[in-house]
């Protein structure tokens, strides 16, 4: 009898879980339907005096900057980036993420724009940090 109880409870739980999953998925689907009106994902405020370049430039060109950094560090050993205002930075993903330390900083935009950069195949993703 008790076993019966348990199994029926179990079925109930599974059903509730499935229903809620369905609901959640549907919410996402609704969200997707109106992507055109969706605002840009918000990111935490950044002290722009410490940025290597204006945010508008970085928003459009960060991938080129990262590629250029990767190339010059790995291939030439040139590890120091000198910004337009003369401040110096180490060319590293860690430099960016040291300031942009919101875990979702990369992911918000990338999932919004549906791009899948391969950085985290090897580099530790901010989502995976303890």
């Amino acid at each position: 009898m008790e076993v019966m109880m348990k199994s029926s409870k179990f079925i109930l739980m599974v059903a509730v879980a499935a229903l809620s999953l369905f609901a959640v998925l549907n919410v996402f689907r609704n969200g997707e339907a109106e992507t055109s009106q969706k605002p840009l994902p918000s990111v935490s405020a950044i002290d722009s005096t410490k940025c290597i370049a204006p945010a508008s430039f970085m928003r459009a060109n960060h991938m080129q900057v990262l590629h250029a950094w990767e190339k010059s560090v790995v291939r030439e050993g040139d590890r120091v980036h000198i910004a337009a205002n003369g401040s110096r930075f180490q060319k590293s993903l860690g430099t960016c993420l040291g300031c942009h330390n919101n875990r979702l900083f990369c992911f918000n935009c990338h999932s919004y724009a549906n791009v899948k950069p391969k950085c985290w195949n090897c580099h530790l993703s901010p989502m995976e940090t303890p």
């Binding site: 860690g94 993420l97 040291g98 580099h123 901010p126």
Partner: peptide, 11 residues
């Protein structure tokens, strides 16, 4: 110019 606030691959 560097704030190592966040410990990924440490800079």
């Amino acid at each position: 110019g560097l704030v190592p606030a966040f410990s990924l691959e440490k800079t």
